[in-house]
C-alpha cells in the first residue's frame, strides 16, 4: 500500500495540483461547500427518520425526492476528495485524522446499505408515521453521528499535531498513523 502511495507522490500531476495557486484551493472549496448539498440533504432525511423534522411528509416522498440530491453531492465529494488525496498522498495516508475518517466513512457506508436493504424494505407500513420504528431511528442516528465525525476529522487533517515528522509521539499514535521511523 505504502509503495503505491509513494508512487502516486512521484506523479507530475500530483505535484502540479498541490503547488497550484488556484486549482488546489478551488478543489478544496468545492469539497467543503458540497457539505451543504451532501450532508445537508442527508441531515434532513435523517431528521425525518428520527421523527424530528418534516413529520407531515411521508418518508417515501422525502427519500425519493431528496436522496438523488444527496447522491449528486456524494459523487462530487468523492471525486474532489480523491483529487485532494492525490495532491498530497503520503502525508494524508499517514494522517491519523484521515485514517479515523476512513473508518467512519466505512461505518457510514455499511449503515447506508443496512438502511437500504433492511430498514427500507417494510417502509410502506410506517411511511406516514411521524415517528418511524426503532431500527430506522437507530440507523438515522448512526448516520448523523458518523457524518458529523467525518466532517470533524476531515477538517483536522489540515493540522499537523500527529504528523510522522513531529516526534516524539506516543507509540500508539505512531502505530495508528503507520509512521515509518528511521
Amino acid at each position: 500500500m505504502r509503495e503505491f502511495i509513494l508512487w502516486l507522490d512521484t506523479h507530475e500531476w500530483s505535484t502540479a495540483i498541490h503547488e497550484s495557486f488556484f486549482v488546489y484551493p478551488i478543489i478544496e472549496s468545492t469539497h467543503v461547500l458540497t457539505l451543504c448539498l451532501f450532508v445537508g440533504t442527508l441531515i434532513m432525511v435523517d431528521l425525518r427518520l428520527l421523527g424530528l423534522g418534516l413529520v407531515n411528509t411521508p418518508v417515501s416522498e422525502v427519500t425519493r425526492r431528496v436522496l438523488p440530491w444527496t447522491l449528486i453531492g456524494a459523487v462530487i465529494m468523492f471525486v474532489t476528495g480523491l483529487l485532494l488525496f492525490y495532491a498530497i498522498p503520503e502525508r494524508t495516508y499517514h494522517s491519523l485524522w484521515f485514517r479515523i475518517k476512513v473508518v467512519m466513512l466505512i461505518v457510514a457506508g455499511i449503515n447506508a446499505l443496512y438502511f437500504h436493504y433492511r430498514v427500507h424494505r417494510n417502509q410502506s407500513f410506517w411511511d406516514n408515521a411521524p415517528k418511524p420504528p426503532l431500527n430506522a431511528r437507530v440507523s438515522a442516528a448512526v448516520s448523523l453521528t458518523m457524518w458529523a465525525g467525518v466532517i470533524v476529522t476531515g477538517r483536522m487533517i489540515a493540522y499537523n499535531w500527529f504528523d510522522c515528522d513531529r516526534q516524539p509521539q506516543p507509540e500508539f499514535i505512531n502505530w495508528a498513523a503507520g509512521c515509518v521511523l528511521v
Binding site: L35, C36, L37, V39, G40, T41, L42, I43, M44, L54, V66, W69, W147, I151
Partner: peptide, 9 residues
C-alpha cells in the same frame, strides 16, 4: 451542513 440542509430542502 445543518444550514445547507434547511435552506436546500
Amino acid at each position: 451542513a445543518v444550514l445547507g440542509g434547511a435552506v436546500l430542502i
